[in-house]
Design a protein around this nucleic acid. Structure first.
Length: 249
DNA sequence: TCCTGTTTAATAGCGC
DNA sequence: GCGCTATTAAACAGGA
């Protein structure tokens, strides 16, 4: 049976799950990450069926984004304020759909507790940095930066200064091996496959991790560079180090 | 106020 | 029947 083309359903409900539709939308974006409103737009643009009963399916879609570990919420860039976060696909979720089919997932994608906790901690740290960045730009007292304990070394990242203009001086991230190795909270690190486990490492001494020349990694690289640029413009030292250069594909 | 995001619950369909 | 996945509904909190 021929696979139906994406845009030939008219007012019929397309045979894609919300997870598939969301993945499609994310895939279709150059940066491989989209805010919720853009995901809505992608779906309604291509599938007229979803121009009706928007409340119903959008609620389901939001439920799927929150409920499924295959979707990762990425805090907005501090220089791109707006409502809601960006959503991307977890790299380990690539093989969710058999043979690239978007009709039905092979198996539900589920992160282990430790992986989920780590990811949440890292994203929270990134969001915290963003808040500090915005507060700095607004000239307001920065909110307390809430680094997760294992993301920062005490020496290189002291507690936020009580002085309004001072953001915490931050240095290198230290990866502390517990159950699983800690990863830098750069977007691209989050999107990369997990590095091999080993002893505690500081990022200074971290050898180049195997880097994917995937669209995700490239987009993450761009995002990272722009974020660094924005941070530099605000005379902020970011809480992470630049990533190793991507190999030329 | 509306949008975004989280969570819980009920239900249906499918494969084993 | 059971387990898993997907869909839908609803309540609620927080932020722009």
């Amino acid at each position: 049976m021929p696979r139906p083309s994406r845009e030939s359903y008219g007012d019929q409900k397309p045979p894609y799950s919300y997870i598939s539709l969301t993945a499609m939308a994310i895939w279709s974006s150059p940066e491989r990450m989209l805010p919720l409103s853009e995901i809505y737009r992608f779906i309604t643009d291509r599938f007229p069926y979803y121009r009706r009963n928007t409340q119903r399916w959008q609620n389901s879609l939001r439920h799927n984004l929150s409920f499924n570990d295959c979707f990762v919420k990425v805090p907005r860039r501090p220089d791109r304020p707006g409502k809601g976060a960006y959503w991307t696909l977890h790299p380990q979720a690539f093989d969710m759909f058999e043979n690239g089919s978007l009709l039905r997932r092979r198996k539900r994608f589920k992160l282990h507790k430790g992986e989920k906790d780590n990811l949440n901690a890292e994203l929270a740290a990134l969001a915290s940095f963003n808040r500090a960045f915005l507060a700095r730009q607004a000239g307001a007292p920065p909110p307390p930066v809430m680094p997760t304990a294992s993301l920062y070394t005490p020496a290189s990242c002291p507690q936020p200064s009580p002085e309004p203009a001072e953001l915490p001086e931050v240095g290198a991230l230290t990866l502390v091996t517990r159950e699983r190795p800690r990863r830098a909270f750069t977007i691209e690190a989050l999107l990369e496959p997990e590095p091999p486990r080993g002893p505690a490492l500081t990022l200074h001494a971290l050898p180049s991790l195997p880097t994917l020349a995937s669209p995700y990694a490239l987009a993450a690289q761009r995002y990272h560079a722009q974020l660094l640029q924005a941070a530099a413009a605000a005379a902020l030292r970011p809480c992470y180090l630049p990533p190793p250069p991507l190999p030329v594909a």
